[in-house]
Amino acid sequence: MVPKPTAPTQETCMSDKIYDFIFRVAEVLELPVVILTLLALAVVLVEVGALITELIKRRSRTFSALARAGASARRAVDERRMDEASALLQTVAWSGPVGKAFKVLVGAVDKPGADTRIAKELADFDFGRQARLGRTRLLVRLGPALGLMGTLIPLAPALDGLARGDVDALTENLRLAFSITVLGILIGVIALALSLLRERLYGQDFSDLEYVAAILTDDGSAAASIAPTGTITPSVPPTPSRPVTSSETVSLPPLVPPAPPAAPAPSGTDVSS
């Protein structure tokens, strides 16, 4: 006698429903993962263009120009010409956030508690810098994660097509899986490069802000030591050499040493003989 098949238990039915739900969720996530990967690729390409623009703006960045603008702005602040001081600093603002920070520094330097206000503005600029870097830092992790999800999700239908002998379904799903993997890794690599470059650029901006803040709040010695042309005046001027007039003669050492004096003759000898 052929044994009758046992009826599926309640636990088996429950587990089958759970597995079927997981498979359906994975299938539903396939299209959103592909769309998010393409959006992440578009965002990282836009960030590349923005970085190129930032690098073009910073081509004329020099410390001498920053020193001239800072010293001129300090002189304008001392004479209560705040608008002129802000305009002078805008010439060395290599980005929009730096220009806004310069305006806040000029506006706070002549008010009570200037040091506290300036310290708060520097902290806010640093916070904004970290938030700006957070976008590309997110893509550094999001790109490979989307690539991994895009790799694993199509593998289930690919294996199902292999079991059914459907070579076309197997090929199509494997191509999708490998393509999403490549895109995810590419997004992560580009985002990492953008984060490193921008971290260096924003570090330079923060250093410029600290330098200008120090010039605006010191006793004026830093601005006084910087000439309007951008050259730093020496603390001790060199002693000028006195030119030689035509009436003066310059004594030169003899080229041939003088001959020694002749020895005196003995007293007892006859010179005439």
Rank of each mutant, 00 (worst) to 15 (best):
R198S: 14
G184L: 01
F178S: 08
L174K: 07
A169F: 03
R200L: 08
R175M: 10
I185P: 01
D205C: 04
Y202G: 03
L194A: 06
Q204I: 05
E172D: 12
D205M: 01
I187A: 11
D208A: 09
L197T: 03
A177G: 10
T171W: 13
I190S: 13
V182Q: 06
A177M: 06
V167M: 14
R200S: 13
I180V: 02
Y202C: 04
V182N: 08
R198A: 13
L192R: 08
D168R: 12
R198F: 07
L176S: 12
G188L: 02
R175L: 09
A193F: 14
L197F: 02
L170D: 08
L176E: 11
V189I: 05
A193H: 13
Q204N: 13
D205E: 15
A191E: 03
E172G: 10
T171V: 09
Q204R: 15
L197W: 01
L186M: 09
G184V: 01
D205T: 01
F206N: 09
S195H: 08
F206E: 10
D208L: 00
F178H: 06
R164P: 00
L176H: 08
A169S: 13
S207C: 06
E199R: 14
I190E: 13
I185A: 11
S179A: 11
A191R: 03
L176C: 04
E199P: 02
L197N: 01
N173A: 09
L192M: 11
F178T: 05
D168Y: 12
G184T: 01
V182E: 11
E199K: 15
G188V: 00
R198E: 15
E199Q: 14
I180F: 00
R198C: 05
Y202V: 00
G188E: 00
D166L: 03
R175E: 10
V182M: 13
D168I: 04
I185C: 04
I185H: 03
I187S: 12
S207E: 14
L194D: 03
A191H: 04
I190Y: 13
L201N: 09
F178K: 01
L186A: 14
R198W: 05
V182W: 12
D166Q: 12
F206Y: 10
L196I: 05
V182L: 15
T181H: 05
L170K: 10
D208T: 04
R198L: 14
L197P: 00
G184F: 02
E172N: 14
Q204Y: 13
L192F: 12
G203M: 07
S179I: 01
L174Y: 07
L192S: 08
E172Y: 07
L194H: 09
D166I: 00
N173S: 09
F206W: 06
L196P: 04
E199G: 15
L201T: 05
D168M: 10
